[in-house]
Design a protein around this nucleic acid. Sequence first.
RNA 1: UCCUCAGUAGCUCAACGGCAGAGCGACCGGCUGUUAACCGGUAGGUUGCAGGUUCGAAUCCUGCCUGGGGAGCCA
Length: 464
Amino acid sequence: MEKVTVRQLAAGAENYAEKQVKVDGWIRNNRDQKSFGFIALNDGTHFNTIQIVYEKEFLPNYEQVAALGVGSAISVSGTLVLTPEARQPFEIKALAINPEGDSPADYPIQPKRHSREFLREVAHLRPRTNLFSAVFRIRSLLAYAIHKFFQERGFIYLHAPIITANDAEGAGELFRVTTLDPKNPPVLDDHAVDYSRDFFGKKTNLTVSGQLEAEAYALAFKNVYTFGPTFRAENSNTPRHAAEFWMIEPEIAFADLNDNMDLAEEMVRFLINDMLEQAGTEMDFLNQFVDKGLKERLQNIVKSEFIRINYSRAIELLQESKEKFEYPVQWGKDLQTEHERYLTEKIYKKPVFVTGYPRDIKAFYMRVNDDQKTVAAMDLLVPGVGEIIGGSQREERKEVLEQNISNFNINKDDLWWYMELRKYGGVKHAGFGLGFERMLMYLTGVSNIRDVIPFPRTVNNCEF
RNA sequence: UCCUCAGUAGCUCAACGGCAGAGCGACCGGCUGUUAACCGGUAGGUUGCAGGUUCGAAUCCUGCCUGGGGAGCCA
């Protein structure tokens, strides 16, 4: 008897019609009647369940099977039957059902709607629900799609370090990495902790970005990307922030800001297309139960050009809009969330690149424009999620970069190697950071980042 | 960190100063094709925690804890 998966059956049930097969899985629902019953079985290989029909006359352990609760693990042997007239295209008429793992009546996941908040408390069981089955299948496919996109274009995948000593990027609060005894650390004469006696002989932390290292590799391999975990110790409590998340950071040499935006746009379009193709069943489910406009919105984005406007023009548009904003719109100040949302959700209703931000509100490594007041930065704003990409052309002129570093009061000594990238074969280059989970939220319509990370880490929460 | 809303049965919620309830789930029974099945019945509670006001508190007040939403920070 051939062991099959629901994935194999979904791909071609007619190959198995009237044949005997064996499937293993977990019971989603079990309904018994006097002499027959139905089990909705999920074997983990496919979003959909397979229906198992079992009858008293064939099963010596009918009563035992009928009593199996939701969540129980079973092995089923039976005949695959095509059922074109029914709601499901095929089912299995059971000849034998072996209980493998019982699930008592207090199993928290019931065949009914649960709140996301409740399911977060049972994060070890929530992947057994429809929503999380869809989300985490798509998460896996999306990670693969990202590699596909860059590998097909000849990019080199770079593993940037996770432990780093540079804290010069200003990209957020850091998680310290140390082996010192917190109760009794070695101290200097002025009672400050003596990090020279720490594991690495200096202060170290978890990475907040692999960008600086990616620049080094872009200036050797031309086009590279990183894709790995990132850590920010921000005390931020929002549906869009996590302390541990994944980020994709491509870096391209001999390229300017426009090349950078072209790449970002092509990538976003590729990822959407790929998910619509690869995850049809899951996308249909999300479109029906999570966000009614999801598929239409994504399909429109694939077709339409992204908007590109500069910061100054964005300020003008917002000022002309007559919309009442809580925070004033003023040149020189950063765009507030409400401003970004207005641009992408009200004015354009599609993704918008905003470029050329004031120099003072952006990072030291961004290339200064000829006006000396703005930098070659770009943010990609999308409806519903807000900023999913932040990037820039990098400052490749050694003198200008040095000036920036001193303007931002950054310790130049930490960046000696970064400066040498400008000294030896420095060339214009650019890159961006894509928040993996934010992209996933955008693709699935799921509005809380805690629901697209298997075991999310946020302020005051490191359960599981 | 700030603002705001909410914690009542396993889950989703009602009761809003006067006997703590419903739907779903669970359990028992019925039903020959169900599919978040249907029909009948049963069990299930220190109303987040601590204090206060009151003859009487799930309900009003104070503090704390937990969670949601908004803001800032950002991806």
